[in-house]
Amino acid sequence: MTESVPLTWEEVARIYGRKIYNFAYRLTGNSDDAADLVQEVLLRVRKGLAAYQPGSFEGWLWRITRNAFLDEVRRRNRRPTAPLPDEVDRWDIASSPSADVEYSRISLGDDVQKALLELPYEFREAVVLCDIVGLSYEEIARAVAVPVGTVRSRIHRGRKQLRESLT
């Protein structure tokens, strides 16, 4: 989506608040964490709108959303008493099952939600942005700052792992 005229903050909140909440909930399985993220993202949007350069608004917004989420994960990882929503920057798929087990324990979602939480972060993020938020591969690539081919690979590998988890 290309916006020649930026939206107002109120319009962003009204149009995208629910999508941001669903994005965060499907990544964390936790409604409190999702609510916190919505507020943090809207705060950043409010601060950033003045400097926004017309272009891909969706890419800009979801990059802010993703960065806010990752910042929160890193902050919590530095404070181990708080629940750990995920390990980020993790490419070793087989590593650290304990974090995923912890996720499943605190999440009361259905089987699909649980399977999502078992995915490595990069795969889960790509699948959620595609299937929950409804972004195109190109929009996801802009938001995540990776090539479109990487997005395509992450989505497919994510779905294949979901399939294994659900059977």
Partner: peptide, 23 residues
């Protein structure tokens, strides 16, 4: 893969908690 894709897309869109975003 089509089944999995449909399953994820069938997850309900959750409502924002009341009062979280007054706008």
């Amino acid at each position: 893969v089509q089944l999995v894709r449909s399953a994820v897309r069938s997850l309900p869109m959750l409502e924002l908690p009341a009062g979280l975003v007054p706008e």
